[in-house]
Design a protein around this nucleic acid. Structure first.
Lengths: 121, 121
DNA sequence: TTGACAGGCAACCGAATGGTTGCATATTGC
DNA sequence: GCAATATGCAACCATTCGGTTGCCTGTCAA
């Protein structure tokens, strides 16, 4: 629903790792997701709460255990709705970039090398 | 190059808006990008610096003006490299989700409604 | 040459963030 | 019933973040 919440939720590497874990095995409990992470259970719980608020995971209580399920829809949504538009203009943007880098801009005599690179890393 | 830097750069709505602006018209200067934004020039400059560090924009000096060019490659990279894998498991993840929500989990008698929804708004 | 314009640098500030510790609560198994 | 297990809640802490203000440098144009 709220793109910003999803983007912010994805901004943290630990949270992305949690999503990766759920992608590997869905329906894990909090304790299972904690295993092997250099973090407190409470820290993981906070991350999961943020992911849940962003609707990236849904939870289901099963007795005293809380199972976590991945919801891939919001990820897909921002990929389609926001990122895709950059794919459309991609060729043109790269052309602009390259042109700007090659032509030393006649009006000014001193033309430094640009701070970014045309190739993506 | 560094996925985390890109994710963090994209986490802020103002920065995404700046990318949108460059997507609409490439090669804008700092002052142009400031126009109409409820922010100081310095704030915008900071945002642009972060975007530049993430390799999302490249800059080119032209006299006293600094032009900014969109680099769509990192966006494409994380979309392909990270988000796409969730697209692959998407059907299965949604099935897991739905199953967990529908079956009230026999072992435990009390099965509350889950806190997330299966549909991703 | 001088003033207006474009931008950079640095210090500062409040709020959010990621993380911890400590304790309370509910469920399970013996 | 009772101890162990699974989780939640709240306070606290250091750091980061987004933003501002103030001042300095470099470039253009009259």
């Amino acid at each position: 629903m709220d793109d910003d919440t999803v983007f912010r939720a994805l901004a943290d590497a630990s949270r992305r790792r949690l999503l990766d874990r759920l992608h590997a095995r869905n329906g894990q409990t909090l304790s299972e997701l904690c295993a092997g992470l250099a973090m407190t259970r409470q820290a993981v719980a906070k991350h999961l709460a943020i992911l849940e608020a962003a609707n990236l995971v849904a939870t289901q209580w099963s007795g005293r255990e809380k199972q976590h399920f991945l919801n891939p829809v919001p990820i897909q949504a921002i990929a389609d709705r926001w990122m895709r538009k950059f794919e459309r203009g991609r060729v043109r943007a790269l052309a602009d970039l390259k042109r700007a880098l090659e032509v030393p801009d006649p009006p000014a005599d001193r033309a430094d090398a640009p701070h970014g690179t045309a190739d993506g890393d």
